[in-house]
Amino acid sequence: MTNQLASARGVFAIAATPFRDDGRLDTAGIDRLTDFYVACGVDGLTILGIMGEAPKLEPEESLAVIRQALGRTRLPVIVGVSASGFAAMHRLARESMDLGAAGVMIAPPSHLRSDDQILAYYAQAVEAIGMDVPFVIQDYPLALSVIMSPRVIRTIVQNHASCAMVKHEDWPGLDKITQLKAFMAEGSMRPVSILCGNGALFLDFEMERGASGAMTGYAFPELLVDVVRLQRDGRRDAAHDLFDAHLPLIRYEQQPGIGLAVRKYVLKKRGIIASDAQRKPGSSLTGTSRAEVDYLLARLARHDKRAAI
Rank of each mutant, 00 (worst) to 15 (best):
G85W: 00
I129C: 02
D132K: 14
V81I: 13
G44L: 09
L99V: 04
T288M: 06
V38R: 10
V225G: 02
Q4S: 11
H303V: 07
F205H: 13
V262N: 08
A200F: 07
I309P: 00
I106M: 06
A307E: 12
D21F: 06
Q138I: 03
E95S: 11
E253W: 01
R91P: 00
P108H: 11
C163H: 06
L70E: 14
F220S: 08
I194R: 02
E253K: 00
V42A: 06
K56D: 03
G29Q: 08
S149C: 04
P172G: 03
V192G: 00
E61N: 05
L285G: 08
T178Q: 10
A161S: 12
R9I: 12
E169T: 03
R232I: 03
I14V: 15
V11R: 04
G197A: 05
R94A: 12
L92P: 01
G44E: 09
P172R: 01
A83E: 13
D233V: 04
G259K: 05
G287L: 14
G100S: 10
D175E: 14
Y37C: 01
L75D: 08
S145Y: 12
P191A: 04
L260E: 09
Y140F: 10
L230E: 07
V79L: 00
S96W: 05
Q68G: 06
A54E: 09
Y37A: 03
V42P: 00
G23K: 09
L63R: 12
D22K: 09
S289W: 01
L242T: 13
R74V: 12
S62H: 02
M1I: 11
L25A: 04
G130D: 07
V146E: 08
I153Y: 02
F220E: 07
T34H: 03
K269V: 12
T34R: 03
D175G: 02
S162Y: 01
Y265K: 05
T178S: 11
F220W: 08
G271Y: 07
R151F: 13
D233K: 10
A39L: 02
M89A: 04
V157N: 05
I156R: 07
L92A: 02
Y37F: 13
L144H: 01
S145H: 13
I250Y: 07
